[in-house]
């Protein structure tokens, strides 16, 4: 089952990645080969086999949802890691292109 360029393009969009045409062709080729290798799993009989999503036999480890105290310098240090801040907030560009491409 080969993967099409369109499928790769769609997945790239889901993954918030962008590829130029050459990269897209290369990824399409590589992903086809790799998923071909994945397809060998189809020969395994997994009738009535439970999927294993976790190793440890633990269920629902919970704790009380209590905020832990944070020092003001921790807040500052956290903000220092952000690419852009203003007045103690993390700054991001507008969701739309200055409103021009707005869906409304």
């Amino acid at each position: 089952m080969a993967i099409s360029k369109e499928q790769v393009s769609h997945v790239a969009n889901l993954a918030r990645l962008s590829f130029n045409d050459e990269e897209l062709s290369q990824f399409t080729d590589q992903m086809s080969k790799i998923t071909n290798m994945f397809n060998q799993l189809q020969e395994v009989d997994t009738t009535d086999v439970e999927p294993m999503t976790h190793v440890v036999d633990l269920v629902n480890v919970v704790r009380d949802d209590v905020p832990a105290p944070a020092a003001p310098e921790e807040r500052t240090a956290l903000l220092d890691n952000a690419p852009d801040t203003e007045d103690g907030y993390i700054k991001v560009p507008a969701i739309f292109n200055n409103g021009e491409d707005s869906a409304e």
Binding site: A15, F27, M31, T35, L41, V44, T46, E50, P51, M52
Partner: peptide, 25 residues
């Protein structure tokens, strides 16, 4: 990309779920 594809609609059963079953084995 591989992960996103394996989890995406239409492929989840053939890939992710199958792999999780093989993991049990």
């Amino acid at each position: 990309m591989l992960g996103m594809y394996s989890l995406s609609a239409g492929y989840y059963d053939a890939y992710f779920k199958k792999a999780a079953q093989v993991r049990t084995l």
